[in-house]
Design a protein around this nucleic acid. Structure first.
Lengths: 186, 186
DNA sequence: TGGGTCATGTAACCTGTTACATGATTAG
DNA sequence: CTAATCATGTAACAGGTTACATGACCCA
């Protein structure tokens, strides 16, 4: 998966590992966090698979860098991945795993749990709404508004997700408050 | 993470690997899919960590089975995990990764892409709404309505997620249709 | 002189996936 | 007779995380 993300970025233009890392942090980290070390490792795999070539560029005043370029074979692989239909998307949510077992803890503690989630959700939403200006700049940079459109779609997803997530938290919180109040009323 | 899920299940009562596997498929698979082989491996890790003990039970007409029981140390670990606050939840969505790079394909193909997603979403929602009756039975079985409450919360999340996901798909689809129609109008 | 940016990775470990392997009983 | 259920795993590989390692340049 990460391989294809890197391939997708290289398809926009040749990049160094450092730049790919930054691009990930700037635009894809909302829904895919990649470790720097993993990016450098995957780049080696791309090279091994013949999907990219690299070229060392010497710089003065700065360390040397390795510029990676996508190959025809890499482009073919990117296309293969894009047209491959796997509508089955295995959701993997640590959040739900933890929520599932919260029956072990007290109502009071779980209300606090949802409050903490709420804060995390706000932080996520804030990062999300801060993105759009970057998209505009990016669209100009790569000179293709169509590409920015799909980026915008992922941001929309993030925004809608945050909103849904917030409603869910509030719903759960209310349910717990009702139970607590029933107990207190006894 | 899976370790803690297994620990959570064992905390409800002693179980065999087979039963844990079934419990995962029945109740946690919506947001966490676990491979059978991984469950058996993690059970060995729990044992190694002293979080669970096992006992071989001979049966006639059926193969022998290994019953796993949570230890005090395992319960402590479960609690540690539950109270540990990590509001940072790294979302990892292959779906968004693919959507991000769809600019490489034609508008027409991408409309078809969203239609395919829509079908996958419906399938997920259908599985989700089929769950509630199981929760009722489960609540009676473990005799603790509080535990079923948190299960229900995860199902609610799934339902709300599916709804949000569907709206997002429709929104994207409409955007693409508008662009297509603008082109056709020329 | 301390922190940020530029720029590269390695090593060990942990977690998840895929393929394979076995074999009895029971219900339709 | 065939498929499902019961019941266990191993081996190899792929993918992700954490910790460590280096070093120059530039700005405040």
């Amino acid at each position: 998966m990460l391989k294809h993300g890197i391939l997708g970025l290289l398809n926009y233009g040749s990049m160094t590992g450092y730049e790919i890392n930054k691009a990930f942090k700037d635009s894809l980290s909302y829904f895919w966090n990649a470790q720097t070390s993993q990016i450098y490792r995957e780049l080696q795999t791309l090279k091994k698979n013949g999907w990219a070539t690299d070229e060392v560029i010497e710089q003065d005043g700065k360390p040397d860098k390795k510029l990676f370029t996508i190959t025809e074979s890499g482009k073919a692989e990117l296309t293969r991945w894009l047209i491959d239909e796997d509508t089955e998307y295995a959701m993997r949510s640590p959040l739900m795993m933890k929520t599932f077992f919260r029956g072990e803890r007290s109502i009071e503690e779980n209300i606090a749990y949802f409050d903490a989630l709420s804060e995390g959700c706000d932080a996520f939403a804030a990062r999300m709404t801060a993105t759009p200006p970057d998209i505009e700049g990016y669209a100009k940079e790569i000179g293709d508004p169509m590409k920015a459109l799909y980026w915008k779609m992922t941001v929309d997803f993030g925004t809608m997700y945050a909103q849904m997530y917030r409603s869910w938290i509030e719903k759960c919180r209310k349910e717990l408050e009702e139970i607590r109040d029933e107990h207190t009323a006894d």
